[in-house]
Design a protein around this nucleic acid. Structure first.
Lengths: 166, 166
DNA sequence: AAACTACGTCAGCCTTGTTGACATTCTAAA
DNA sequence: TTTAGAATGTCAACAAGGCTGACGTAGTTT
């Protein structure tokens, strides 16, 4: 439990009203969270789904299609539609697995990495501004609560990603 | 700025790596955030869009269509499709404005309030568990960072809603 | 050889967003 | 008192990005 620093561990932070505020904060903040990348993407032929794929391929290069599927939590048909355009446009390339040739190991091309940078620069800029305004203590709390909100399976994905090159 | 409680206001919390963790935390946590209501809704003819409308009508009864439009940030055509089904199914009713008869003041019916309760009970349960696990300090930080992430306009919506009955 | 796995693909459907155009009713201003 | 504008509803068409179901092709494992 927390360290009761205020002296009033009054549980007032668990009232329905406080919870409602938290719920709405998630709703409004998520809009801000996606707004900047969305603005960059619009006009291109891409959307938020492409952003997510690019993000996670960048994060763990060499990731297989099925592990990306697991992280994104969509069907392979849905992901495939996205990946196909990324292949066709030369943003992502798939290399046949070394030990298991059925696997497609996903990597960003230079072009893909450039777009990734543009998107994540925009998203990080907002995040950085928010972090800076809130301070390190708040950031720690922010992360703690978000982690506690995740489904256990997602929490594993969140914590467990590593360089996916065996 | 923050109160530098740790003695090391090292700005290490602003590294790209820390920001990336925050970004992914938002992504995974938002999935958990919507999962429970989505489960309730599926099988009914409703979706997340209906949930949002119901939530905000509950929160500020008597709200006009255009202010709901402003909060949700969608087009009137899109909202109308949702509202129409809610009217037809008797979850929401529209009362003509007293002073301005062009306005439709939105209210939940008993049936609508019942669904709202089911949805928000589920969503609050997860939120409450997360809050309790994280503790009051963390919750405060959570809210602080989320607020700082919002667009200014959305922040006003977040802070400014009041009983919308003039 | 048979079974299973990883991946791709076709086809069709749904929700929820978008634009554009237009109609109605009511308010407010000239 | 017209007239402009605001609040709302609605029709049509389209797009993104989810979904299911079915099927095919490599490659692996048993």
């Amino acid at each position: 439990m927390a360290d009761n620093a205020t002296g009033s561990d009054s549980l007032l932070f668990l009232t329905d009203e406080q919870l409602r505020k938290g719920i709405e904060a998630m709703f409004f903040a998520y809009r801000g969270f996606t707004a900047d990348p969305d603005r960059i993407l619009e006009g291109m032929d891409y959307g938020r789904a492409h952003h997510r794929a690019i993000h996670f391929i960048h994060r763990a290069p060499g990731m297989t299609v099925s592990s990306l599927l697991g992280i994104l939590g969509v069907t392979k048909q849905s992901l495939n539609r996205v990946l196909r355009t990324l292949f066709d446009d030369g943003l992502v390339e798939a290399r046949v697995g070394k030990t298991d040739k059925r696997e497609r190991r996903l990597h960003l091309t230079d072009k893909g990495a450039a777009l990734e940078r543009a998107l994540s620069d925009a998203q990080r800029a907002r995040m950085r501004a928010a972090y800076r305004a809130a301070g390190p203590q708040a950031v720690h709390g922010f992360r703690t609560v978000l982690e506690a909100m995740m489904d256990p399976e997602m929490r594993r994905q969140y914590q467990g990603l590593r360089e996916d090159t065996p």
